[in-house]
Write a protein that binds this DNA or RNA. Structure first.
Lengths: 336, 336
DNA sequence: CAAATGTGGTTAAGCGCTTTCTCTAATATC
DNA sequence: GATATTAGAGAAAGCGCTTAACCACATTTG
């Protein structure tokens, strides 16, 4: 049924080694036999089995992509770029969603290895290093996107989160806001941590009081954002501005504001982070910190592929600059 | 370096056949040897190579998912569900974006086969049937999601697009709208076609005039929607309501309306389709036709897996009911 | 013109696993 | 107690491919 290299060899009157050589363009083959073999391959609709060739030490030309959730616009945009660049370089991508569950992540890590992927791109918050370390030790190609593990020498492509946080907070401060809240995911995630550190530093630099009540750690979805915003906006310490560390959270803020009858940006300024499609859809359009997602997606794949193809590849961190995109969700503070 | 079945066999003092048996839970193994082998596997961190086992006729436990674009919320939500259900059943998913380019699609189809995936889920508008037909002929497991190819006996999971179009248009008619426009993607795509047919039928049933000027075929993105809506809203035949066949197009309509200073729903009612996350984010929240995405995702995978695992599986079409979700983007027609 | 060199190809081993066939030893049967 | 069963395990072939080692022949070279 299935046509194999033997069928081709037989029909072309050569050995399978010869066929293999024309497939891979290796060794010396006379123009005549090459033609003949190619011809037979064509008529037989022959397609080399990647599984078989992988078994003999060749690449599977497949990479794994581990992210929290493709349904989250930020990651779906990343996934798209990764796939695009992967295709350009001849790699397919195996998509894995973990919801940031460490067990799921660990499971995928070892599963992907079992499946002999050539490398893995990780966009989740890695908490459990055991499997990861093991892979790293045996020099398995791994690259991180949009997160970092500072204590590891590892390939990383991410935005400068500190700078992003700095830009966002500074923007609000420059608009005269004094009570600025920040909503983030999990401080164990480096991206969140850096944004938070920048937030604190800007407050300090501007002589603004740091108030713990204005810091909310939540999760990454809109519902989480809404819940957190509701809490924030109902409190006696109601902020005049919120820096939401993800656009999704910012959307939650919009929903909360609407429910409470607050107008954005008149009653409340909000800055997001990521500049996903959400930022442009929402009304008013969201001021946010843009991550160069396209560039990031392209670069992780490039980095990973170098790790795959080059014998001695030096790990590196690629830290890209964020950009403040001012739209209509932020406005001069008028209160008091 | 890499630990193989031989290492395990040697250390456990048994043959590789025995090890294979305990891995796969086949054949008769004494409790004692099983224990021993499992123990050795554990201490050696042994992980069977799926590539090698695939070569001997076992499954790769990988399925392909071909969609236009994961960055499109509808498909990212589908992708997520497919992956979830796949994981439950022990399958990984290889993500392929085609942008509805037939060549890319064809390329993926044969690439996926080369990679020995166990089956393929297709969510794109298939135009070129040659490769598809070939796969079908050799009984390669394939399932369609959110689209159909009526002339083929094939596994399909989709929403009842006609009913969806019917509900959407009827809703607008019942609100007293007479000039109802429709924006769709490509009439060669069955989903679009059925929605359009329903639109026409509803008009007819209600004695409303069908006006070609109010039908716009565009593409699937927001920009396309905006462009189309601008055209529609600037024309002398300005409609009082628009049925956008995808939420993304509807968002484009919002943007166009905003640009023209038109208020939704007061100046213009709009109904979307899909009930993606976009519908709830947008302001005012979008009245739309909900597709049971979760259910669809689950069911395609189930169907596909049946095709993979059951020798004689009868192809079937699973057609799920859509639901009209009334939010605030539609309103009684007051004009004239 | 014998030896060296180059060209085009074949043979065969091996990748890590599954599975059929076979064999041995223990247990059951009469 | 001899024979029939059965449980447990091993030997070996084979999956489709790559590649190192090898070989036959033609062509150069001094």
């Amino acid at each position: 049924m299935k046509v194999t290299i033997y069928d081709v060899a037989k029909k072309a009157g050569v050995s399978i080694a010869t066929v293999s050589r024309v497939i891979n363009n290796t060794g010396r083959i006379s123009e005549k036999t090459r033609k003949k073999v190619l011809e037979v391959m064509e008529t037989l609709h022959y397609q080399p089995s990647i599984v078989a060739s992988a078994l003999t030490g060749k690449r599977t030309r497949t990479i794994g992509l581990i992210i929290p959730d493709v349904a989250n616009p930020f990651f779906s945009e990343i996934a798209r770029k990764v796939e695009d660049r992967g295709r350009e370089l001849g790699f397919n991508v195996l998509m894995c969603n973990t919801d940031n569950n460490p067990d799921t992540e660990e499971m995928y890590l070892s599963l992907l290895k079992q499946k002999s992927v050539d490398g893995i791109i990780i966009g989740t918050t890695t908490k459990n290093y055991t499997v990861l370390n093991e892979l790293l030790r045996e020099n398995f190609p791994i690259a991180l996107i949009a997160q970092d593990i500072p204590e590891l020498a590892i390939d990383v492509v991410r935005v400068d989160d500190f700078l992003g946080g700095y830009l966002a907070t500074s923007h609000l401060v420059s608009l005269g806001h004094k009570k600025i809240a920040i909503m983030l995911g999990n401080l164990s995630r480096t991206s969140d941590k850096y944004r938070f550190q920048a937030y604190r530093q800007v407050l300090e630099e501007n002589g603004l009081e740091y108030n713990e009540k204005l810091v909310i750690c939540t999760d990454y979805s809109m519902e989480d954002g809404k819940r957190a915003a509701l809490e924030l906006l109902k409190s006696s310490q109601r902020p005049t501005a919120i820096f939401a560390c993800f656009d999704a959270l910012a959307v939650g803020v919009y929903q909360a504001a609407k429910e409470l009858g607050l107008n954005i940006p008149n009653d409340l300024s909000v800055v997001g982070f990521d500049n996903t499609i959400l930022a442009t859809i929402v009304d008013p359009p969201l001021t946010t910190i843009a991550q160069p997602i396209d560039e990031m997606g392209r670069q992780v794949v490039d980095l990973l592929v170098r790790g795959i193809e080059e014998e001695k590849h030096t790990k590196q961190r690629v830290i890209l600059p964020p950009e403040l995109i001012i739209r209509n969700s932020t406005k001069e503070n008028v209160s008091k």
